[in-house]
Design a protein around this nucleic acid. Sequence first.
DNA 1: CGACTTAGTGTCGTCAATACACAAAGATGG
DNA 2: CCATCTTTGTGTATTGACGACACTAAGTCG
Lengths: 212, 212
Amino acid sequence: MAFTYAYPHPAVAADIAVFTLRRGALHVLLIERAGEPFKGAWALPGGFLQPDEELDACARRELREETSVEAEVLVHFGNFSAPGRDPRERVISVAYLALLASDELRLAADTDAAQAQWFALDALPELAFDHATILQRALAALGARAREVQPLFALLPPRFTLSQLQGAYEAVIGEEVEKRNFRKMVATLACVRETEDFVHGAHRPARLYEPA
Amino acid sequence: MAFTYAYPHPAVAADIAVFTLRRGALHVLLIERAGEPFKGAWALPGGFLQPDEELDACARRELREETSVEAEVLVHFGNFSAPGRDPRERVISVAYLALLASDELRLAADTDAAQAQWFALDALPELAFDHATILQRALAALGARAREVQPLFALLPPRFTLSQLQGAYEAVIGEEVEKRNFRKMVATLACVRETEDFVHGAHRPARLYEPA
DNA sequence: CGACTTAGTGTCGTCAATACACAAAGATGG
DNA sequence: CCATCTTTGTGTATTGACGACACTAAGTCG
């Protein structure tokens, strides 16, 4: 016998915690389950790995299929393998984290995405499976990564004001920072380039920046 | 039909990169493959997930079975899912990193471990599967984590001198640091407690410390 | 055109990180 | 036993990041 691994194989799935910024607060994208188990409950988007598909590609595909969201950055932050976490059969879940600019949320407009919805982190519904745990871990991973400012660009439009960048930073790390200090930090990191354009709102126009 | 996932399931395995310190240099533990494929080649210890077994437990068990090494710390650092990475069938590999005190290497003495051997990182043999890639990623993950001194304790005996701790630190991050500065850093972190004992070598005795 | 609101800037104190040099303790060998 | 060698062990000065703090600039709205 060429291969001695006699045990049954588990199913392998990717689950994705997609975060965006709405009105300055982090929101997570959930889908309403159409079938059993946990029918009608909310869950992280995700699904099963296909033959000859890489895990990263699976996460990207499932996210697109279930929510019509195209993720730029997709980072793996952990596996979930507790026996019984899926009542149907053994499922190993490979968990990913993604960030999305608020602008790109055309969920309601998209037919496939009727069941997808953004939830503020302080107004979460009951989650299916062990997705509450996965979400907790996703937030921890996000906070750890946020000290580097680069990932935050994914939460913002291509060009943004420093106030927007600071808002994203504060939302992710969960505390406020002093404006002058934040700008000093950004200057030190040299991760943005100033443009010649300004955005005109209700008050003094703000200069637009772009990733360096 | 209660369950609509019609695709074949992949096999799931854990692979472990165990590092230790020998003569001041990092070494990795490899096993010689007894069967096809890659028979006779060296590989990271690892093996397939069993029913109702958590991934962490699988890594710990496989490591024990194949090398008789008991790992204290076992950290997940990535998944490897390229189709074709195992010629037999689709295998998703969940990769772990472990550190081991040099004292505990009783490999030769153990019957099961006849095929296990430590290799210096600059004298590696050809590795089976994509284990060279996995090892590269393990080293990167190790370097990233080493800034915190805590994990290094696993590389050292229960009580150690500051020179030993500094040696471990240097081996892991791959560069030398200044003695006074290193000691200042350790003092700031307050992660060790001094003992009343000294180790007597060929020269001035060095005070022993233990994790705080 | 006055009031309001947001954008944008500089200083100082503190603290961590870097560079650097010499004294203390014990072992060894003549 | 004394000189030499090797490793342990310590203090200071400088630099750059981080945190607190207050005002001016520019445009909108009424």
